[in-house]
Design a protein around this nucleic acid. Structure first.
Lengths: 181, 181
DNA sequence: AATTTAGGACAGCCATGTTGACATATCTTG
DNA sequence: CAAGATATGTCAACATGGCTGTCCTAAATT
């Protein structure tokens, strides 16, 4: 039987140059670890389903953003995923070949290949998003409206806002509107 | 210039069997995407530092849990990371060879190799945790105490509580105590 | 007409995940 | 004590999904 030692209590403090001289910030081991476990389980649900389809996480990410932003072009998709053309090419080719995504030449610029999810693709995205939504809704139970709003603000605050890709920009814009509405 | 279409508004609804017959739950695209971007940036900070050390994310995860739970044995580490012995072996060997971690035979069971971070290891973990803490603290600014508590509850609620590994169990126990205190 | 851009495709490398087999030391049990 | 179970380490081999660099075509831009 392994007996687990208590978590370390250390004096490790902030490296934020903006806060030099101020009262040091205690390391947020709690949030760091909660985020690790939360994300692990959050992506774990889809992983099982994807396996049945012979797909991986990379396919999920591509399908998700193509479905959500219909007509997305390849360059913007590369930016949001932060991967290279080659890496994207591999999974995108599979999704095209197996009929989850279709391409359409751009209207203004016919070099562009705009991406759209097919009905088959939508079904897959919906299945995966359903699992994740269930988990989110469960986690939000027990929080009131202001608690849920705090969660949104927190997640938004965790994101780098400088030099956003086109998709992130759209999300940030939409979020700004939501607050006012 | 690519013009991004608006996000899809679909009728995709919950797959939660517990909610069959009830009002369908709207897909939480907002939280799904916020989590994606938040986690991307959350792990992005450490990634840059790790590169300078010739390490990857796998090394970070190992170092983190070894530092936080001193004397952790290999079996428990495998469980929390959810990887195989072989995968762990590769990165653990490097961390041992380069003096970031040391092993000690178990006291009660001398087959066990209990793991401890060296001063060098602690320094690395501290640097990485500092970056992540800075981001977390920034994200929590603008939230009051009840908002921060909502964030903790949400993250906790996102985690599977059945069949927890030893490390997660310790965290859940600690969290229970915190609520009362 | 020349250059740039959007996208695709090639070869090949690396990190990190997987399985299965097997070895050693040690603990537990009949 | 002998036998079996357990903790760990190690080897070979493979898959996925990152990466780089090069080169190609078609279409847009200058």
């Amino acid at each position: 039987m392994a007996v687990l030692n208590s978590p370390t209590r250390s004096g490790i403090t902030s490296a934020d140059p903006q806060r030099a001289g101020e009262r040091p910030v205690e390391t947020r081991w709690d949030i760091i670890e909660l985020l690790f476990f939360a994300y692990r389980d959050f992506v774990g649900d889809p992983d099982h389903v994807l396996e049945e389809f012979g797909f991986g996480r990379a396919h999920h990410r591509v399908m998700h953003f193509v479905y959500r932003y219909p007509g997305l072009n390849v360059a913007d998709l590369l930016e949001v995923l932060r991967i290279t053309k080659q890496s994207l090419g591999r999974v995108l080719k599979q999704l095209l070949d197996e009929g989850y995504i279709v391409q359409k030449a751009g209207d203004a610029d016919r070099r562009q290949r705009l991406l759209f999810a097919t009905a088959k693709g939508e079904a897959l995205v919906g299945k995966l998003a359903g699992l994740q939504t269930d988990r989110i809704v469960r986690a939000l139970r027990g929080l009131d409206a202001s608690g849920a709003e705090a969660v949104r603000k927190f997640l938004l605050g965790m994101i780098d806002h400088d030099d956003p890709d086109k998709v992130l920009e759209a999300i940030l814009r939409a979020d700004g509107k939501m607050v006012k509405a």
